[in-house]
Write a protein that binds this DNA or RNA. Structure first.
Lengths: 185, 185
DNA sequence: GCGAAACCGGACAAAACGGTATAGTATAGT
DNA sequence: ACTATACTATACCGTTTTGTCCGGTTTCGC
């Protein structure tokens, strides 16, 4: 079955990309770890860049869906959605596999705004912002767009700081700041 | 004189690292752009990593000093220091050379917390947090440590978003959020 | 069981990588 | 003028990079 190999390839690639970086991770390493022959990979994906894009695409869907559902189950009432998001972040940061946001890392390594990888990262962040905006609207924020923008920036800040320092209290402290922002409307 | 070559090497290296990434930038490219022979570089710096560290060290001093002085001149009163910081950020983001924070990029590419490059990035961010805390204390914040932590996260978020999207209004929007945070004490 | 498609493993290519060796030139200070 | 030092230019080393080619094997649908 082709899907098994293809999926394992994408999963392994994403894990290694996330941990060691996109340029630092060689094709050979991915192939060895995934247990897949080189030509199999080059038949499924025409290039390393295509594999990167496939990995990011899968991660995009999965991560947004996970954030949404996890936040929804954590939030008791719709008004708590935005704050519950930071509890979800806390769970994310606390995981063993956490090595920062793969999209932020990608945008850092592929700085050119025309680069497909950068565009993929940008698109993901657009979806993240949209999710936050939905949460803001559900919470009945008076200015959802503005609130979402503020919370989003806090989310990115927390993500970066968590990866940089490894501090486990990062999400909780960001949540405190978010409480202040939301209380002010 | 050795200082001229050494300095130009460090400046060129930092500029290219910032734009194309650390791993993506080859030694040869730096040497060509700086107009320096290979052996000259390897006499000054024993390795590429040493050059990276030297570039980050210089950037660390310069950037912290620039942030501090620029913010001080922009702030009318000591109470405005924290808000003026975001005006400084705005000026930084608006520059042609802006390609994100080189330390965030470094920490993304060198994820291992024991890596000297990652440690250098962490140390810089510690100094940035210290600067923000000084501003918070000067502004008479009731809980300077907490306020500084919140503002710092906002700063990192704004920096990342500015690099990712290229949006020129990022710093201004972060400033709006900071106003809310500061008004709440 | 048969044919086709997927897969394997290893050899191979061409370029780029970080780093070294060497031989020779420019430029100081004394 | 002499000498120490900084620097240059080029060739080279071994490794690693992405990507290709190929002959043989496994696996799957029918």
């Amino acid at each position: 079955m082709s899907l098994k190999k293809k999926d394992r390839l994408v999963d392994t690639a994403l894990r290694l990309f996330c941990r060691y970086g996109y340029r630092a991770t060689g094709i050979e390493t991915i192939l060895t770890e995934a247990g897949v022959a080189k030509m199999t990979m080059y038949n499924h994906f025409g290039s390393k860049e295509a594999l990167i894009l496939a990995a990011l695409e899968k991660r995009d869907e999965e991560h947004i869906a996970w954030l949404a559902s996890e936040t929804q189950t954590r939030a008791g009432a719709p008004e708590d959605g935005l704050l519950a998001l930071f509890d979800t972040l806390d769970a994310w940061f606390a995981g063993d596999e956490f090595h920062g946001c793969p999209f932020l890392k990608a945008s850092g390594e592929f700085d050119d705004h025309d680069d497909p990888v950068h565009r993929a990262a940008l698109a993901h962040k657009g979806r993240l912002l949209a999710l936050i905006r939905e949460l803001a609207e559900a919470a009945g924020a008076p200015d959802p767009a503005r609130t979402a923008g503020e919370i989003y920036m806090l989310v990115e800040g927390a993500t970066v700081v968590a990866q940089l320092t490894g501090d486990r209290s990062t999400a909780a402290r960001a949540k405190q700041a978010a409480e202040v922002l939301l209380a002010a409307g």
